[in-house]
Amino acid sequence: MSTQTTPRRRAARSLLATGLVTALALTGCSSRDEAQAEGAAAGESLTITDQRGETIALDGPAQKVAFAVMPAPSIFAAVDRSYDRIVGINSSTLKANQGGMFATMFPASASSATIAGNDFMPNIETLLELDPDVVVQWGDNGPGVIDPIESAGFPVVGLEYGTQEDLETWITLFAQIAGKPERGEHLVSWQQAQIEEMRGKVAEKPAERPRAMMLSRTGDAYNTTTGAGYDGFQFDLVGADLVTQDFVSDSGQVNPEQILDWDPEVIFLSGFDEMTPEDVYADPRLASVKAVADKRVYKTPLGGYRWQVPSAESPLMWAWMHHVLYPGQDTAEFRADVKAGFDDLFAYQISDDEIDKVLRTDLNKDSAGYGQFAR
């Protein structure tokens, strides 16, 4: 374990020590710089231990945060109940922001600067222009995506991905970065309470569970997930047997014959591509798959972020999946939970029309049982 101490932060602390902060203020330093200086002078510095085991020292709660990691900005916004500190994001996050509710809740998110693409390689020139207090990056993708950021003088919080424990750690780390540890505790407690509640609901269901899978498409090729990732936890939690549990593939690609062999009863479609239930129903190669024949194919929701991946909104995803798998429950209560969730997470009063948008009712309207989500 080591402590990151960057030249830029050492210089800032040196300025504080020599009393030059006042001089900088007189010559036009930013209010953010003043706030950082005041926080550091008041002894409000903080240290964070990331998922690499690295200790990161900050002068105080970060006022400007950049995210190379895709799902992270919406989680940070939920912790902060604001987008004000987010200055840079991944290009994939920008696409999700523009296509979903996030830009409605936080208009600035639709035009955020991008600091990385799908390969997560940082754009150092953009980072230098943005001058964030800290950069959030994958901690397990090798030094190539982290070293350039640290070499430019920016502290890096490294993350790992794949489990519910990782998600709860992210929430805790972001709460520390924002200087709001109690808020992080609140959100983690909500997640854990919803897990226990969902387990109780599933325990009351029949022992034979619906067979289900997650499906996406890249070009003409289908792709899926396995039990080794978050879906191994998520599908089990909501009471589904993940038919791809033991599937092994470096690329994630799966051919129609394999899907026929699995014969899932329910198919959830990824939010990372444009494939719709109608596209699946129209594929003659999948016509005899039970989920297709019964029209039980559903596009996953897009709220603050794509609900299928670990996020601050994951409890809402679990509830939605459970309703799809086991139709006939009280969906009025679910819609109320969505409203309460958006209020607590994002300080946003979501309308019924916007809930319909989040739930992709336009794309799912012809799928079996989706009328249950109507107002």
Rank of each mutant, 00 (worst) to 15 (best):
L269Q: 05
P327H: 01
V324K: 04
G328A: 13
L316Q: 12
Q308N: 08
R306V: 10
A319Y: 00
E274F: 06
A287V: 02
W320A: 03
H323R: 12
S314M: 11
D283R: 00
I267G: 02
V266S: 05
K290N: 10
A312V: 12
D294E: 15
K290V: 04
K290Q: 13
L302Y: 09
M275C: 07
P315V: 05
L316K: 08
A319I: 00
S270T: 15
P301L: 10
V297P: 04
Y305S: 12
L316Y: 11
A319Q: 10
R306E: 12
E313M: 03
P315Q: 08
T300R: 09
W318I: 09
L269F: 08
Y281Q: 05
E313L: 04
F268G: 01
D294I: 09
Q329H: 12
E274C: 03
S314A: 14
G271M: 00
P315F: 06
A287H: 03
K295V: 05
A287D: 12
T276Y: 01
E274K: 13
G303M: 07
H322E: 12
Y305I: 14
W307P: 04
S270A: 09
K290M: 06
V280F: 00
E278L: 13
G304L: 00
V309F: 13
V280M: 02
G303P: 10
R285P: 04
Y326W: 12
Y281L: 03
A319R: 05
P284T: 13
A282C: 05
K290S: 15
F272E: 14
K290E: 15
L325S: 10
T300K: 06
F268Q: 01
L302E: 11
R306L: 15
K290F: 02
W307D: 07
W318R: 01
A282S: 14
V324P: 02
Q308V: 07
I267H: 02
R296G: 04
S311P: 14
M321L: 12
F268P: 01
M275P: 07
R296F: 06
Y298W: 03
E274Y: 08
V297A: 03
W318E: 09
K295Q: 15
P310W: 11
P301Y: 05
V324Y: 03
G304I: 14
A291C: 07
V292H: 00
G271W: 00
P310H: 11
L302T: 14
L286S: 07
V280G: 06
E278P: 05
V309K: 00
G328I: 15
D273M: 13
G304S: 10
G304M: 00
K295E: 11
F268S: 01
